[in-house]
Design a protein around this nucleic acid. Structure first.
Lengths: 213, 213
DNA sequence: TAGATTGTTAATCGATTAACAATC
DNA sequence: TAGATTGTTAATCGATTAACAATC
């Protein structure tokens, strides 16, 4: 059974393929070769073919790839065809921004609830969803069984919340906090977005560029 | 001269070291071995020593590393000791959220201006900085010479803006748009934050976990 | 000194690139 | 058919891990 696990390096390139294929589709391009796509994306053609062939043969010799079909296939590999109930924990600046940003951009994710510990926010509507007090978390999850939690709370509050959420059956965390979920709960899926880390990395790249000249 | 270039894999771990060392420092831990740190971070001790030794010998045999010294050293490697003038382009939900999020978290970055194409936002204060119309960009940059631009505008607007910003001497882009700066301007530093990609990656990880059981 | 832990070299492992036979 | 381009195997390159001598 279990085919050899596809490496995270490959997986992280899939959303980018998906985006580029979407753009090509919008432009009305129906067919593309690994060579053309690689030029646009700044990769090697070999890598694209290698990546795709982790999941099956989506192309045709002498022709290339059908843009629409390949986009659909990549979407399915990512699991975008399976809509997922998603809740937001923490309705601060970042949480709201992510919600409004995502709403029109990404498909396959339905925000079904927003929770915050601040009672003053309860009842407030954000992007068509009413914010509830965090105390309502257990009741909601037992009924609705959401799959994903977007974690937008400070690190200190995360520890307790993650425990509650894992117990309530959350399968994946989109983690904007600095709490190291993955280290403590290896059984759930975690995708960290560490904005501070990203900015520090940029800082290094600038320095490196300076030194090069 | 030019020492062999340190790989991006190593660089991306540095901010995480920096964070963990900061936490240890706050807890009053003054000394740590690569073994202890590796256990906390979920890495191998070998990797930590290997990473640090790309930049010099910060430890002491038989003792380990001095937490405060090492944190300071990592900060300097990242260039956090050189404060950088930073401007925000696009004062929408995401731009505002990032600003308020960063303000109290990261050091070494001074937001000196905010620009938006919406004239209605001009004059509005966000985190102590007044928003200006994007037309004022050239004048401002010629005087203040900012180093970093946080790009929080839709892809369509990015193309033109990035050209203007590069011409104005911006050295690094913290890019939240889907415009592929790096492909078109290889001479500037770019750090992409593709939130949509990250969420899709989470989606895959959930699927993978499901299939494993 | 003896014990601990680094810095560094060597071995392993994995990911990327190159090459080419298969085939549309 | 001839030309193009894939799927896939082999070669290369780089990153991680293991081992150990150096040394505090």
């Amino acid at each position: 059974m279990s085919e050899k696990r596809v490496s995270i390096s490959v997986i992280r390139r899939l959303p980018r393929y998906y985006r580029f294929l979407g753009m090509l589709e919008e432009k009305g391009v129906s067919r593309i070769s690994s060579g053309e796509l690689s030029a646009k994306m700044g990769l090697t053609a070999s890598q694209i073919r290698q990546d795709l062939n982790c999941f099956g043969g989506f192309g045709q010799q002498g022709y290339g790839y059908n843009v629409t079909d390949l986009k659909k296939a990549v979407g399915e590999i990512l699991g975008l065809d399976m809509p997922k109930e998603t809740i937001l924990i923490g309705a601060g600046n970042l949480g709201r921004a992510i919600l409004s940003h995502m709403a029109f951009r990404e498909k396959g994710f339905a925000i079904t609830a927003i929770f915050d510990k601040d009672p003053a926010l309860a009842g407030e509507e954000i992007g068509g969803v009413v914010t509830e007090h965090i105390d309502a978390l257990e009741d909601f999850c037992k009924i609705h069984k959401p799959t994903i939690a977007i974690l937008c709370v400070p690190k200190m509050e995360s520890e307790d919340l993650v425990k509650r959420l894992v117990d309530l059956g959350i399968k994946g965390f989109w983690n904007f906090s600095h709490y190291d979920i993955g280290v403590f709960y290896p059984g759930v899926a975690v995708e960290n977005v560490h904005l501070g880390d990203s900015l520090m990395t940029l800082c290094y790249k600038i320095k490196e560029l300076d030194e090069a000249k």
